[in-house]
Design a protein around this nucleic acid. Structure first.
Lengths: 212, 212
DNA sequence: CGGAATCTTGACCAAGTTCAAGCGGTGTGG
DNA sequence: CCACACCGCTTGAACTTGGTCAAGATTCCG
């Protein structure tokens, strides 16, 4: 297949095209304490949300205590836009979070702006799928850390808002594996840890070559 | 978490809301032989497509010959709508396929209809992610077969348009594992195989209880 | 009929999970 | 102020699932 020979650069989902965009129209601002649920699976869709500060996780609970986190959302990012009339996932604040809340009264008249969010969400889910479907544990962590550093402002120093359990459930791993991979990256001096949540990316190049 | 106690019925992505919809506007009809590429990663996005007959796979090639199939598309389904101006995946015909081809000149004026496709694509990718991230091999196959039977018209008898390799690359497994799981399902009389591509779902209930 | 795909099966192996114990920080109550 | 329990994280050892490698079987065609 000649297609294979084409340049396949890692495509990060355009992080800035809706980044800190101010969405026009009236909205409320709501604050959620860490751990608070924003909406639940089965709830009627009436609003969508833009993170002002904090971090949100969108996830599904499966039987036997399994959980899959579908996406994290940071400042500027939009979530809660869905295909049907009821939410198919749960959303919760990870840290204390403030949200701009928009009414979704007439999806039709907002379709132009919503389209961007939907396409972005689709792209994110697809890239995520790639990582979870075809990469090993180290590659997943590398991809995750790079994505995070991009979305939090291309920083070398990261402060993780989420727990190891959240990371594990996002990457389709166990908490123990996440921990072991962290240790391995630390041993190779690819990252450094101030404490468990404060990560320093020492060798971004090494991370990049790991995940692709 | 009280959220966990809510009814969590398996949410199949609404298969019919854009199913066989006739999209208004001028379009070409194009035919692709089995295996032919429809677009490649990096190509400029100028069109989007609705399958009239046949089956399409959308995928990415990774290093070391790894491949992840992001989605399959059957008659009536739309693909090729993307966030950016270049395609982030490859698309190819699996069997001989005819497509209705729509120009995407002004995304803005089509945003209302495109929104539906984008939301649908997002939902599909998210459900897929769930399967690949948190289910074992048997559960993945079960989910796959059920999804397929829904989308091909809630049939008991399926004719798989794709190879074992395609299924493996869709589910994040190897071809050998797919084969072994098929055999196991056959041994348990949950499915029956006329030939490798013709599947009879004997116990849909058993399949359903397997995948969740 | 022969040759090439495609698929199945088996034996072995490795990555990641499971289970269990220990560490370190934090908060609480005696 | 210290003791103790709790929580999140790390580490180790045993185990399991699915991957790898290799050999056959089956189908598809020319």
């Amino acid at each position: 297949m000649n297609a294979a020979s084409r340049a396949l650069e890692r495509s990060h989902v355009a992080p800035n095209n809706i980044g800190r965009v101010k969405i026009p129209g009236p909205h409320l601002v709501a604050t959620y304490k860490a751990g608070r649920e924003i909406y639940g699976q089965g709830d009627t869709v009436t609003k969508y949300y833009q993170v002002k500060t904090g971090t949100v996780r969108v996830y599904r609970l499966l039987e036997e205590g399994r959980r899959q986190i579908v996406s994290f959302h940071f400042a500027g990012e939009v979530f809660g836009v869905e295909a049907g009339s009821t939410h198919r996932f749960f959303a919760a604040a990870i840290t204390e979070t403030t949200l701009a809340v928009f009414r979704q009264h007439t999806v039709k008249e907002h379709s132009r702006e919503l389209l961007g969010f939907a396409l972005d969400g689709m792209a994110r889910a697809q890239e995520h799928l790639l990582v979870v479907g075809r990469q090993c544990a180290v590659e997943r962590m590398a991809a995750f850390l790079l994505d995070l550093s991009h979305r939090l402002g291309r920083l070398r120093q990261l402060r993780l808002p989420m727990s190891r359990q959240d990371i594990a459930d996002y990457l389709g791993l166990t908490i123990e594996t996440v921990s072991r991979v962290m240790t391995k990256l630390k041993e190779r001096s690819i990252i450094a840890l101030q404490d468990t949540r404060a990560i320093d990316i020492m060798k971004p190049g090494a991370l990049r070559s790991l995940c692709q």
